[in-house]
């Protein structure tokens, strides 16, 4: 088990949802877990928006200072590097979307030893629907950050309308991208009770980021 787990990808690929769930999973096996929000691009639906619920579960949340947490500013706190270096902590890093979000990783590069970097892909999202697009995204993100992506993650979904067929469809596309990129698929994500008996390891998540306003 690597010490640091970094989730990267395009906007809206599901990085935040996955990072939250991954931190919760780590917390079951390890005492000290930190979830770091270095999303400098998303205005809403960030780890920091779920701060209190997560802190109650004993996970350390690292985010911009309270008084500027809603500012439209690219803030990375000093503490981030500390947690990445601290051998006592398992760390999950939620990186902002696209090439603009991932520049943060270049800055943190020297702190990313013993780290797995996962590219989160939802093939139902724009710009990641074909093998060519996914390969392009992976190479572009590696180039912009100077950090190597180790694994792909199949997070194909249509929110509450997801079916197992949709997940398999994504898996097939990702398998081809995996061969071209020479990066294995770490796991497939399925929310709540959606059936999955595909070939990959399954990572079951609970939806946090689903719209909290109770919209029908």
């Amino acid at each position: 088990m690597a010490k640091n787990h970094v989730f990267v990808g395009l906007y809206g690929s599901g990085k935040t949802e996955l990072a939250i769930n991954y931190a919760i999973k780590l917390k079951k096996d390890f005492e000290k877990v930190a979830l770091i929000d270095v999303d400098i691009v998303s205005p809403y639906f960030r780890v920091r928006d779920f701060q209190h619920a997560l802190e109650a579960s004993g996970i350390v949340i690292v985010m911009p200072p309270q008084k500027i947490k809603n500012a439209d500013l690219p803030v990375i706190t000093q503490a981030v590097a500390g947690y990445l270096d601290n051998p006592q902590f398992k760390v999950v890093l939620d990186v902002g979307g696209d090439e603009r979000g991932i520049v943060v990783l270049g800055y943190l590069k020297e702190h990313l030893f013993d780290t797995n970097v996962y590219l989160v892909v939802n093939t139902k999202r724009p710009f990641s629907q074909t093998v060519e697009q996914i390969v392009y995204v992976a190479k572009m993100l590696e180039e912009r950050s100077g950090v190597r992506i180790d694994f792909l993650v199949n997070n194909t979904n249509l929110g509450s309308q997801t079916t197992c067929e949709i997940i398999y469809e994504g898996e097939k596309i990702l398998q081809q991208a995996s061969i071209i990129l020479e990066k294995p698929i770490a796991f497939t994500v399925a929310a709540d009770s959606i059936r999955y008996d595909g070939e990959n390891e399954l990572f079951r998540i609970e939806r946090f980021v689903k719209t909290k306003e109770g919209l029908p």
Binding site: Y11, G12, N122, K124, R125, P126, L158, G159
Partner: peptide, 14 residues
């Protein structure tokens, strides 16, 4: 065919 989009992306595609 359905895709998963943010409101602003969907307006752009439309």
């Amino acid at each position: 065919k359905k895709v998963m989009m943010k409101g602003v992306e969907a307006i752009g595609e439309a």
